[in-house]
């Protein structure tokens, strides 16, 4: 895991986002056990307290859960993961439409433009 951080945004929020992406992209699989807080902190080169805070947030989102003695696991609720995936896809699409609008493409034109690229990329 190689994370780039923007010092302007709270680090734990960036960690939550990154880990969320790992989960919805399947890079970390449903039901997979997460590394310990310390190991995760070390890999991402952040403070263990910050990592802890991020994991609590993910747990609040129900994307991970704690098994008392075994550690933390990614949820096996695929519907939930799909829900977050859709949410994220919506956000990305909105960003695309907004950016296109800023250079004079309305939504319809923006979609046509995407189609014209036709999956060549």
């Amino acid at each position: 895991m190689n994370f780039e951080f923007d010092n302007n945004i709270p680090i734990y929020i960036q960690l939550v986002e990154q880990l969320k992406i790992f989960i919805i992209s399947g890079k970390i699989q449903p039901g997979e056990r997460l590394l310990s807080v310390r190991e995760l902190a070390l890999q991402t080169k952040v403070n263990p307290n910050t990592m802890q805070k991020a994991l609590i947030e993910l747990e609040n989102l129900k994307l991970i859960y704690t098994e008392r003695t075994n550690g933390k696991f990614v949820t096996t609720d695929r519907k939930l993961i799909d829900k977050y995936k859709k949410q994220y896809a919506d956000e990305l699409s909105n960003k695309y439409f907004l950016s296109m609008l800023s250079i004079g493409f309305d939504n319809k034109k923006a979609i046509e433009y995407l189609k014209s690229l036709g999956g060549n990329k």
């Binding site: 010092n7 302007n8 709270p10 929020i13």
Partner: peptide, 15 residues
């Protein structure tokens, strides 16, 4: 707290 300060000021500690 570092992250609180970032949120409050909307910028990095360095800034």
């Amino acid at each position: 707290d570092t992250d609180l300060l970032r949120t409050k000021e909307n910028s990095s500690i360095d800034d």
